[in-house]
Simulated assay, not measured.
Amino acid sequence: MNQFPMTVQGADALREELNYLKTVKRPRIVNDIADAREHGDLKENAEYHAAREEQGFCEGRIQEIEGKLGNAQVIDVSKIPNNGKVIFGVTVTLLNIDTDEEVKYQIVGDDEADIKNNRISVNSPIARGLIGKEVDTEIEIKTPGGLVEYEIIAVDHI
């Protein structure tokens, strides 16, 4: 059984969604199906078929989340001593040496990655280039636009 790293925030978000699906959405869909059944002939009943389809999606998502949580290795980086080394879960501040621009990324599990919120997958080229490196190290990262040189200026365990 492969375990996948996940931040505490990522696991909490999945548990919240799972709770919503089981306590709010699933009962509503069951109600919708019961209401639609009362309308008679099920072959011609669009509401019934739509509700059954939604039920399939909902149950599929519940199983998917339960599977992910079951295989998750939840890592609370705030409980790990900060020795300046880049590890899963940390927030890294990088300085682009050419442009003098600073950028911050949190290294997260695949399902948690969200580039708009500067959360990058541990399996992304940037994260792979950073893991194991230390503060004040200069690194080159291959990006779609070519090679970019960065200096690691901070590693935070938030």
Rank of each mutant, 00 (worst) to 15 (best):
M1A: 14
Q3N: 12
F4P: 02
F4I: 15
V8I: 11
G10W: 07
D12M: 14
L14Q: 10
L18A: 02
N19F: 13
N19H: 15
K22S: 03
V24H: 15
P27A: 00
V30Q: 12
N31A: 08
R37S: 09
G40V: 08
G40D: 01
E44I: 15
N45L: 00
N45G: 07
E47G: 12
A50Y: 08
E54N: 12
Q55M: 13
F57H: 15
G60H: 06
G60T: 09
I65L: 03
I65G: 03
E66S: 07
N71S: 15
A72E: 00
I80D: 07
K85A: 05
F88P: 01
V92I: 05
T93M: 01
L94P: 05
D100G: 08
E102A: 10
K104G: 02
Y105W: 06
I107K: 04
G109S: 02
E112D: 05
D114I: 06
N117D: 09
N117T: 06
N118A: 09
V122P: 06
N123P: 08
S124Y: 07
S124H: 06
P125R: 05
G129N: 05
I131K: 04
E134Y: 14
T137Q: 09
T143N: 03
P144H: 02
G146R: 11
Y150H: 09
Y150L: 03
E151G: 07
I152Y: 00
I153P: 01
